[in-house]
Amino acid sequence: MGLEQKLGDMGIVTTTLDKMVNWGRTGAMWPLGFGLACCAIEMMSAQASNYDLSRFGMELMRPSPRQSDLMIVAGRVSRKMAPILRRLYDQMPDPKWVLSMGDCASCGGVFNNYAIVQGVDEIVPVDVYVAGCPPRPEALIHGIMTLHEKVKGETLRDWA
């Protein structure tokens, strides 16, 4: 992003700019709908009426990785799916975050065998892990709010 190169380090002015940019990023973080298995159903429940995700700015799950900021890996990642997951992560533009939803994405979950990647952090760097099998929609929302807290602590130089 060209903003960081042009401004450099301007002390107090940059800090306030950080806050503004982070406010913009957390206010409307568009998720990539990467629902794989059972956690995807809880993600859809979180999107729908009772636990509305639109109030966090995530009105739509963008189907294309080029238009999304947040990849919610919801569900178990099999060995066949792993290269595709990495390719989608590489296709997302900066700044991007990864939220690993559920036990299978965080650590392999119940399935400790030949077919499942034991934790999606073997493939992509993860920012927030949400535990549960599947996590309640409230747990997912808590994970998203934790991610917002983390983003608010970032500076522009992290993504330069």
């Binding site: 060995r79 066949k80 065998n113 030949y114 034991q118």
Partner: peptide, 19 residues
């Protein structure tokens, strides 16, 4: 399984690959 996988998983002499 992926197209380049070696082995036949449900045979009894194939290990579970328990981590």
């Amino acid at each position: 399984m992926p197209a380049d996988w070696e082995g036949h998983p449900l045979r009894k002499d194939y290990p579970l690959d328990y981590e």
